[in-house]
Simulated assay, not measured.
Amino acid sequence: MTNDTTRIALITGASRGLGRSMAIALARKGVDVIGTYHSNTEEAAAVTATVEALGRKAAMLQLDTGDAASFPAFAERLQQALADGWERSHIDYLVNNAGIGVHASFAETTEDDFDRLMNIHLKGVFFLTQRLLPQIADGGRIVNLSSGLTRFSLPGYAAYAAMKGAVEVLSRYLAKELGPRGIAVNTIAPGAIETDFDGGAVRDNRQINDFISSVTALGRVGQPDDIGPAVASLLTEDNRWITAQRIEVSGGMFV
């Protein structure tokens, strides 16, 4: 039986990239992890094994964060996972990380592109958080993922950045409305990171990589492990008095 001092984090999109880094960083800080994955069961199992190797409990649940109609059933599966693995009914932390990238000029962005981005990055975040409110412990934390692209503009990301800008506004409202329950809500805004996001362009295209390095104060492109520990740190008691904030983790892009 898990004691009441154990902390449990739910991270969407935890099977790879930034979400994987967050899961590992939280495990290293003594936090148990429930992650979601979209379709790759092997990657999900690998994250579970890594977290467990660090001495923490882990579970991975399938979820399409762009399908709000699936959220009630997911909440039930989460409740069962908590009961089976922890003999508890609440999580302490929710990290809305799952996302996709669409690179298209404003003129060429299709309605389907727009809807996919909205369903995952805005509608999904809004209604998944709403659905899980009864399962988030009083005094808990929520972290929503935004992007450096809400502060600076690069052609091709108008729709994506618009969704992330909306998430930043939503986060402030959540901080205000959930404050009476002692729940802190913040936004982490990564800069360009070497992942498979947007087809791995930042990681695999040398020209793009060199350009980002040239406009970043710390002189390089970000790595997933620049983000995961930052999220884990924000969820610790050391940062309990931080809420309603946008925290950019970009190495100083375009400063």
Rank of each mutant, 00 (worst) to 15 (best):
T41W: 13
T41A: 15
T41H: 14
E42S: 08
E43Q: 15
E43Y: 07
A44I: 08
A45E: 11
A45I: 06
A46T: 14
V47E: 01
V47Y: 02
A49G: 02
V51S: 03
L54H: 15
L54M: 15
G55D: 06
R56E: 06
K57W: 04
A59K: 12
M60G: 05
L61Y: 13
G66A: 03
G66M: 02
D67E: 15
D67T: 12
A69S: 10
S70R: 05
A73Y: 08
F74I: 05
F74T: 01
A75I: 04
A75K: 06
E76D: 14
R77T: 08
L78Y: 08
A81I: 00
A83C: 11
G85Y: 00
E87A: 08
R88D: 07
H90N: 10
H90R: 07
V95S: 06
V95L: 09
N96C: 09
N97L: 03
I100W: 00
H103L: 14
H103P: 08
A104E: 01
A104W: 05
S105Q: 09
S105A: 11
S105K: 11
F106N: 11
E111Q: 13
E111L: 12
D112I: 06
D112R: 03
R116A: 04
L122F: 10
L122R: 04
K123R: 08
V125Q: 04
F127N: 01
F127T: 08
L128K: 09
R131Q: 14
L132F: 01
P134R: 07
P134F: 04
D138I: 07
G139D: 05
G140D: 08
R141V: 10
I142Q: 04
V143S: 06
V143P: 03
V143N: 06
V143T: 13
N144D: 05
S146A: 07
S147G: 02
G148N: 13
G148D: 14
T150W: 07
R151L: 13
R151V: 09
L154N: 14
P155A: 14
G156E: 09
A161S: 13
G165T: 10
E168Q: 00
V169H: 15
L170N: 02
R172T: 11
Y173G: 15
L174A: 12
A175K: 09
